[in-house]
Every structure is written in structure tokens, then in C-alpha cells.
Deep mutational scan, measured.
Amino acid sequence: AEKTGIVNVSSSLNVREGASTSSKVIGSLSGNTKVTIVGEEGAFYKIEYKGSHSYVAKEYIKDIKDE
């Protein structure tokens, strides 16, 4: 089941290729951006990003809701 969340950062949140802080950064999301969460892996959520799937750190996503 998909969930949505809100990016909870003051500046921007790195979007990564994989579920690791050493993964390549492929983009960023600004605070209060709504994201669609399709899964989770460790400390990361797998999200829909620009037509494919990428990862963001869970600690920076708030207001998780089931869609």
C-alpha cells in the first residue's frame, strides 16, 4: 500500500539512488514537498521521484499517511 509523507527540512533533502548515505545523490526535495512512499529499506523510504524510484532518509519525512 502506498503512503504519502511531507519533507520536513528547512532547506533541502537529498534524494539518493540507493538506501544508503553513501549512495549517489540524484536530486533534492525542498521542505513541505509531498512525497509518495512505495516502500522502506532500513533507515530510508523508497519514494516515487521523476518517474522512477529513489530513496530519502526516514528521519526527514513527517505526517505519514496511508493513501
Results as ranks from 00 to 15, higher is better:
E40F: 05
S30P: 15
K50F: 10
V56P: 00
S22G: 09
E40K: 04
S11D: 13
A57L: 15
A57G: 08
E59Q: 11
I47F: 02
G5C: 07
I26L: 08
N14M: 14
E2W: 15
S23G: 05
I37C: 03
I37L: 04
S20Q: 06
K58Y: 02
K24S: 07
E41H: 07
F44Y: 09
A43Q: 11
K46D: 01
S20P: 02
S20E: 06
Y55W: 12
V7Y: 03
V15M: 06
A57K: 10
S12I: 12
S28V: 14
K46M: 13
K65A: 11
K3A: 06
V9H: 11
E67K: 13
K50Y: 09
K46P: 00
V9C: 15
G51Y: 04
V56N: 00
T33P: 02
V56E: 00
G27S: 02
S30D: 11
I26V: 12
V25W: 05
I64G: 06
N32F: 11
K3N: 05
E17Y: 06
K65G: 10
Y45D: 00
A1C: 15
V38T: 06
I47C: 02
G18A: 13
N8W: 12
N32R: 09
E40D: 06
G39A: 07
E17L: 08
K50G: 09
S54D: 01
N8M: 13
Y60H: 10
Y60E: 06
V35A: 01
K46H: 04
G51M: 05
E41L: 08
G39S: 06
K62T: 14
S22F: 09
H53I: 14
Y60F: 13
A57S: 10
S22I: 08
K58C: 03
V15T: 03
S23H: 07
V35D: 00
A43L: 11
E41D: 09
S12Q: 11
V35I: 09
G39R: 03
V25K: 05
K50H: 09
I47V: 05
H53C: 08
R16W: 15
K65L: 11
V25D: 02
L13A: 14
K62Y: 10
I37E: 00
V15N: 01
E48S: 09
E40Q: 07
Y55M: 01
G27D: 03
S20N: 09
I64T: 07
E17N: 09
L29E: 01
I47P: 00
E41F: 09
F44E: 00
K58A: 05
K46A: 07
D63N: 10
K3F: 10
T36L: 11
I64N: 06
Y55N: 00
K62A: 11
K3D: 03
N8A: 14
K65S: 13
Y60W: 09
T36Y: 14
D66Q: 13
T4F: 14
V38N: 03
S30L: 14
K34S: 07
A19T: 05
F44V: 01
T21V: 12
K50M: 14
N8R: 13
Y55T: 00
D63M: 15
K62E: 09
R16I: 05
V25I: 14
S20T: 10
G5A: 05
G42T: 03
G51K: 05
S20I: 04
E2P: 15
K50N: 13
K24V: 07
Y55K: 00
A43R: 08
E48T: 10
R16D: 01
V35N: 00
N8P: 04
S52D: 07
A43I: 09
G31E: 08
K3S: 06
K62P: 02
V38F: 06
G51W: 05
I26C: 07
G42P: 02
S52W: 08
G18I: 07
E48G: 04
S10K: 12
A1M: 14
V35E: 00
N14W: 12
V7C: 05
S54K: 10
A1E: 09
Y55D: 00
V15Y: 03
A57W: 08
K65P: 09
G39F: 03
N14Y: 11
N8L: 09
K62N: 10
S20R: 05
D66E: 13
S23K: 03
G51A: 05
I26W: 02
G39P: 00
T4Q: 09
T33W: 06
K58H: 02
G18Y: 14
K3V: 08
E48R: 12
Y60V: 04
Y49H: 04
E48F: 13
E2Q: 15
K62G: 10
N8S: 12
T33G: 04
S12W: 13
V9T: 13
I64E: 07
A19Q: 03
S28E: 10
K34Q: 09
K24Q: 08
V9M: 08
S54Y: 15
S54A: 15
K46N: 02
G27T: 02
E48C: 15
T36I: 14
A19P: 15
S28L: 12
V7S: 04
S12D: 07
Y49L: 03
S30Q: 14
V35K: 00
G39D: 06
S30H: 10
I47W: 00
G51R: 04
I37N: 00
V38M: 07
R16C: 08
K24D: 06
G31Q: 11
E59F: 08
S54I: 05
V25S: 05
S11G: 15
A57T: 05
S12F: 14
G27R: 02
K58Q: 05
I37Y: 01
V56A: 04
E67G: 13
S23M: 04
V15A: 03
I61V: 08
K3W: 15
G39N: 04
G5Q: 03
L13S: 04
E2D: 09
Y60Q: 06
S20C: 08
K50Q: 12
K3H: 08
I47L: 02
